[in-house]
């Protein structure tokens, strides 16, 4: 196997790695860790693998990574991803990517925390988290709007990079935090179109809170071949 991923299906951070691996068509060994309710990621057994006590963990021989930015970078290089994911000879683009990878941590600290609270009632300063999450969405919305004026669909250009993968989950999952608190996508058209562009990539996979791409399974329905419902069909 190419690497081992200690994973939790509901985690947006773990999803980054599953998603990118699927886009790159890379197989890996997956080990489910009971983040909730068992808090297995903080168990002695898991702390011995990664003292950070977080998920995901990417392990390859003696290398253990606990930061998703590092994992995405390693995957892009190690699996010979197309150059646009990490433009090898474009230092300015790399700097932008690193900048947005840092922003992805802000998303985890706001929307990620707010979502855990909404699901599992973990204690948070809700007002601060919601304000922070909204500020983060506004920031990325403004940036994507400006990108669209130049004809670009992604964070740093016309093709996706590992920064788009890093920012995608918690932007897409923001409605999970709650309704009518400025975290629905209704207020953010550029974000909606960016999400659609990412979901349209070959190898896209969903996670709970991010619907499958049903649009792409276009199938023609032969309305003429249908028989009428019988009256009282429910009886």
């Amino acid at each position: 196997m190419s690497f081992t991923l200690y994973d939790y299906a509901l985690s947006g951070n773990c999803y980054k790695i599953r998603l990118f691996a699927n886009i790159l068509n890379v197989e890996y060994e997956r080990i489910a860790v009971e983040f909730y309710p068992g808090a297995e990621h903080r168990s002695e057994k898991m702390l011995q693998i990664s003292p950070a006590g977080t998920l995901p963990i990417l392990k390859k021989d003696d290398m253990v990574l606990s930061e998703t930015s590092a994992m995405l970078f390693w995957m892009a290089k190690n699996f010979n991803a197309a150059d646009h994911w990490w433009p090898e000879n474009d230092v300015a683009a790399q700097a932008q990517i690193i900048q947005w990878m840092g922003f992805a941590s802000d998303l985890t600290a706001t929307i990620g925390q707010g979502r855990l609270h909404a699901l599992f009632q973990t204690p948070i300063d809700k007002d601060k988290i919601v304000k922070g999450g909204r500020a983060a969405l506004r920031k990325i919305e403004a940036h994507l709007t400006e990108q669209s004026f130049d004809g670009f669909s992604f964070l740093t250009g016309d093709k996706p990079t590992i920064a788009d993968i890093a920012c995608f989950p918690y932007v897409a999952l923001s409605p999970d935090v709650g309704a009518n608190i400025g975290l629905d996508h209704d207020d953010y058209p550029a974000i909606r179109n960016w999400i659609y562009a990412l979901k349209s990539l070959n190898g896209f996979i969903p996670m709970p809170g991010i619907y499958a791409m049903h649009e792409l399974k276009d199938h023609e329905i032969d309305y003429g071949a249908q028989k009428p419902f019988k009256t009282g069909a429910a009886q």
Partner: peptide, 21 residues
């Protein structure tokens, strides 16, 4: 594993949650 069984059920229910809300 226990983690796998719990995760499977949580995954299913979280998908339902997006509908229910």
């Amino acid at each position: 594993t226990m983690a796998e069984m719990i995760e499977f059920q949580q995954l299913i229910f979280l998908q339902d949650r997006s509908i229910l809300e």
